[in-house]
Design a protein around this nucleic acid. Structure first.
Lengths: 201, 201
DNA sequence: GTGCAAGTTTGCACTCAATGCAAACAAGAA
DNA sequence: TTCTTGTTTGCATTGAGTGCAAACTTGCAC
């Protein structure tokens, strides 16, 4: 992957970040229907129309954080050796990923899921993630592996992974101290282990 | 549960059905942005304002079908004996549920998931279902069962269940012949079995 | 630098979603 | 009938979202 960094790309990245950040900032203080796209655009130093060049709604802007986190997980997963058992790869990828800052934002946006309109977009991010992971799994598992096996496994992993984050968030709120983050990694690892071993108990 | 059936309740149910049905009817022929709420309201024989008394958007109206299906699954699950292993209950509840007509509509709305705006609302229905099933599981499993265990199991079951429907839909499209439906039940059963036994292979 | 091509932002105009409110209307109970 | 309560409807208002064309910025070649 090349990294062509001209002013064009930099400006776009900066705008995108400014807009998403501004949206999140507003949500810290007010509910979704208590401010407008104009407000966010102004805060981001950009016109209303430009806002919509980047995101189709405030909800989408906020969901971009979740998308970015999940993409980083997928990148980590793809970096694992292909001969490693795939669920072990998943476990290790999850253990590695996420700077404290990124996880803090993840926890924060997770809290916002209370608002259904925001929640929908987060769910969509998870769903897209599921599709992408299924592609990775399809490439790594033996040719001709049953599609049900692949999709059920990935669906289960993502479902259980999300459950781990839900439980973590319920226990720790938006605390992202090293201790709390260690607990998150632990929960994620346990969740994947459950998928590997089944719920036969 | 009482069943107080006056004209009031009947009218409301009829309106609700008419609106959701009209929305689905439009989507059979046109894309989401090719018709308006006014169109749907007119088709349903109701004012625009009344449309919004029932659903907050066309997307929500369409998602009501998925909601209803998932609610019926939950009802079936709650009807299973409490001493049955819970994943067996899940398997059996899924096997029983859904008239051919309901499953036909489910398959149809599933196809519409291509449109992200519609997909988001469907995902939300699945998510609400996850929460409700977690409540059922919490009541049935021994007191003090780890929340991670409960949520991961339910997340996995729902994720794998949805995967089964996705695979079924990819293989059979909107074919809801008895043969096709038998395949769906089979896929669902296999998916749950995978969750029970794990992906250790 | 100058000038040109391609990409990006912005303002404007327009349609339509979504909600509050109050008046009209329908249903059930006395 | 009459009264009460729940439901529908029209009207008015705000703001989301998009198409379009003009202004502006960047990259590139000379």
């Amino acid at each position: 992957m090349s990294t062509p960094v001209g002013r064009r790309e930099l400006n776009k990245a900066a705008n995108r970040e400014a807009i998403a950040g501004a949206a999140l900032a507003f949500l810290r203080n007010r509910a979704l229907n208590e401010f407008t796209v104009d407000d966010v655009a102004a805060e981001a130093g950009v016109s209303r129309r430009t806002f919509f060049n980047y995101f189709s709604s405030v909800e989408a802007a906020v969901a971009s954080f979740t998308q970015d986190y999940l993409d980083s997980v997928i990148t980590a997963l793809e970096a694992r050796p292909v001969d490693e058992p795939i669920l072990e790869s998943a476990q290790l990828a999850l253990a590695d990923v996420g700077s404290p800052h990124d996880l803090a934002v993840l926890a924060e946006t997770f809290a916002l899921t209370q608002d259904p309109a925001l929640g929908r977009f987060q769910l969509q991010a998870w769903d897209e993630c599921t599709v992408k992971i299924a592609d990775v799994a399809r490439r790594r598992l033996p040719q001709g592996t049953d599609e049900l096996y692949i999709n059920a496994m990935v669906g289960a992993v993502v479902g259980a992974g999300r459950a781990a984050i839900v439980v973590w968030h319920e226990r720790n709120g938006t605390d992202t101290s090293p201790t709390s983050l260690a607990q998150l990694r632990e929960l994620l690892a346990t969740a994947i282990a459950l998928i590997r071993n089944g719920f036969q108990s």
